[in-house]
Structure formats: C-alpha cells, structure tokens
Amino acid sequence: MITAKNKKLCQCPVCLTLNSASDSYCDQCHAHLSKISPKCIQHTMALLITSYLLFIPANFLPMMITTVLGSKTESTILGGVILLWQSKSYFVALIIFFASIVIPLGKLFALSWLCYETNYIGFKSRKTAYRSYRIIEFIGKWSMVDIYVVSILVALVNMGAIIKIEAGFAAVAFTGFVVMTMLAANTFDPRLIWQSHTFEATHD
C-alpha cells in the first residue's frame, strides 16, 4: 500500500492539496498540516480527561429547576428521563436517555479505547476501530438535544408565579462536555489506525 507518508507527502486536511512532508503549512490554503504521529493522541487524551471530569457535575447537579406555584422541583438528567417515563411519554424518554447518557458515555469509552489501542496494544481489527471512529464522529453532536430542549423550555415556560422553568448548572457542565468530546473526536487522527507500525513507532 502506497500512502502519502511513504512518498514523503502530507495532505492538507482542509483543501486536500498534497504538500511535501517537510512543510508545516499548506501551500494553497495555509492551514496547519498535522503530521501522522502518535503524539497527537495527547491532545485527544487531554480533551477526553476534561470530558470525563465535566460528565460528573453534568449528571449529579440539577439540569432543570421547575417552579410550580411556589414549589421548586430540581431534576437531574436521569431524573428527567425517569419523570418522562413515568408520565408515559416513552418515546421522548428514550430519545433523551440515548442522547444524553448512552451516546456520550459510549463515545467517551470508545475514544478512550481507541487512544489506548494506538498507544499500547496496537489495533486488533483496523476495520472495527475505524468504523467505531466514524460512528463517534457522526453521532457526537446529537448529545446537544438535551441542552437545546432545556433552553427552549426556559424561554417558553416562563409565566411568572404560576410556572417557571430555569436551567441548572448541569446544563453548563453538559454543554462544556459535549463541546469537549466533539473536539476530542476531531483531534483524533484516523490515519493512525491505518498506520502499519503505530504501536512500534511509539516505543522507538
């Protein structure tokens, strides 16, 4: 297999121009050229750790504070899902459950596993690794659903003393979390998966 790296070329990620591997900026569009190196995993891992940390307050602090006739109820993300399930809107409960718990967690674990494989054990199946990367990249932004819903509800349900919905701090944490995971997925270089000697390269 002849890759651009073998030919001492480096492709611009923005405009797809082939530059010589010694350049650090693209000739045509002046974008930064990232070399295929296991070192760039460090960016991904730093962002991943930030996301893990943000995931904790996002799930344990209240996401939404509903005030009905003076009585306050605070609900976390999971609490909101359970509330929806009990009020028999199963479909919405499932959407929120998948968008804000299952997908983000799966994404975090999958990305961490990819980083681990590139750094330590090498890829058992490149196809599976690459497919999971594509899924992570595609699915990432759907976690935003819950934040959008909260901000729409805050704007919509604001009837003074009768009923009022406010956003809790978890919304901010969750926003940061989604942005961080998206950035982490963007910084992960899929070309590392297809490198024939990724694992050995880290140790010489």
Partner: peptide
C-alpha cells in the same frame, strides 16, 4: 491521499 487513511 485518502483523508482518513492516507492511501494515495
């Protein structure tokens, strides 16, 4: 070159 696997 392929954007995701660098194949020419």
């Amino acid at each position: 070159a392929c954007h995701d696997c660098d194949l020419l």
